[in-house]
Design a binder for these strands. Sequence first.
RNA 1: CGGGGCGUGGCGCAGUCCGGUAGCGCACCUGCUUUGGGAGCAGGGGGUCGCUGGUUCGAAUCCAGUCGCCCCGACCA
Length: 574
Amino acid sequence: MRLSKAFLPTLKEVPADAVVTSHKLMLRTGMVRPLMAGVYSYLPFGQRAARKAMDLIREEMDSFGAQEFSLPTMTPIELWDETGRNKDFGNEMFRLQDRKDRTMALAPTHEEVFCAIARNELRSYKELPQIWYQIQIKFRDEPRPRSGELRTRHFIMKDAYSFDVSEDGLDKSYQLHRDAYQRIFKRAGLKFFIVGASSGVMGGSGSEEFMVESDAGEDTCAINEESGYAANVEVATSKLQDEPDTGDTVPFEKVHTPGYKTVEEVAAFLKLDPSRFIKSLVYVGDDGPVMLLVRGDDELNEEKVLPILGASMRPAHPDEVKELFGAEVGYLGPVGMEGKLPIYADLRLRDGRNRATGANENEYHVVGVQVGDTFSPDDYRDLRVIQEGEPDPVGGRPLKVVRAIELGHIFKLGTKYSKPMGATVLDENGKDVPIIMGSYGIGVGRLIAAALESHSDENGCVWPMTLAPYHVAVILLKAKDETVAAESEKLYQQLQDKGLDVALDDRDVRPGFKFKDADLLGYPFQVVVSERNLAEGKLEIKRRRTGDKDVLPMADALARLDEWIAAEWDLVKA
RNA sequence: CGGGGCGUGGCGCAGUCCGGUAGCGCACCUGCUUUGGGAGCAGGGGGUCGCUGGUUCGAAUCCAGUCGCCCCGACCA
């Protein structure tokens, strides 16, 4: 590309609305422009990056026999009623009417549409397995689009679906995707990790998320790179034990604690460590109120409670608490509540000695509580939020708590869609069986954004070779000089002949402008052709990632460039 | 859905408290000079101040409503 003819609206100033790095860079480099909240136009430079990402994904999908489709995004609403997801998606799904007042949905994902094809076309187990995918725009009316390309209402996603006759087959299809995803993210130069996840509105028997560590991320994960443990904090566990109580057994006793309600206040008043307290929380679930106990210095993890209480769970209202316990929040405790409501205690409270907790009487607490003796919970469960530095559950190494971006999600769906939709095949015995499905997604815009979150510096983008819109920029200083122009033209051709994507900066602007632009745009390499160096038969080359610069005789410069290019490709090997 | 912030030439902002008919930097156009890290000088074009209504002799500025955008939380393949 000759930049003198290119549409490349780079910005010197940072747009006011951008907060996260990738958003700033994508606006400044002229990759994207906002059209409305959570909806972006891709401009040529951005589209080139997106295409690189899509080509990479396509290559890896095709490599294991996945077949590319292109399905409509406009879909009949009845399709979504078949699986109940018209209701499940609720306001998150865009709907529209045609002139006959027929309702349609803009697809937020494509399980139903692909499954409809499978239902109409697949008849026999002999036709399976099938793996189908597309790279297509999805629509989701997010409650809060944010962070530029990281959460949008209109985005490109690679979505794949597998169709098998057996659970074994599904496991194989799932593993093929899992392996391909690892190659894709590795080749995109991303340091990712895989976490087990809850399947949410997609349903199914299991799923895993591919995460990239980034402060701009919306998820929080606990990881240890050595042991390989990684989990969303929602489900993360640790090996942390309760510190055993030392000293003599303290007698059970009610103490007056006027006005002291929080663990910190009461602990300070009683001169006890907060860890020696039992924090009592009351929630209401599908089957009524439940008491949940954690150590005074721990925090309840609502996600871990969800399976116990059911989807309708909520904290109890103050009046409900008053009625059940005869005391207000702040003075609640498990002693004497056995049998009145289910009591679940965190694992760390097992065999706790000499603990303090609420007395179920306003302004009073009790001390000398022996867990399992003074009271016994109905069960012990892991209920707490883990903290940075705790020993991981596999190897006991310290956990790091990090923010992360979810780039991909793979699901074992089972028959969640095929059953209600009647997508069946005949098995070896001539019996109709529902097709067993999996689904597998990668957010293309997120992949680009995550790459920039991980690879940039104060001067701009630092693209990996795989995603770089252009690999090299040939920068002419003194574009009007004929010798410089001729030499640049030759290099432009020569580099392209090596299979590189080359930008020729032949614009009639000052050198400083070109250098700044080149650094901002993040070409992995810059080749500078100047009158000055040319007179000595020399060429200047720069490697963006390292900032290395060399001025060498033409042939040596090109040889050095080849070395650098090889080294850059090495960084993104699968 | 709750909380906060912001809408003034293409971009970044000042002016709003205290009403008097819109300004700065960048970008853009013309000319001259300049050419190794987002040039200098001179001249020039471009904004019914998000929108609607109200108060007033007079509204970017005050009042009411409305729309849009950003951020935090809730929610979320």
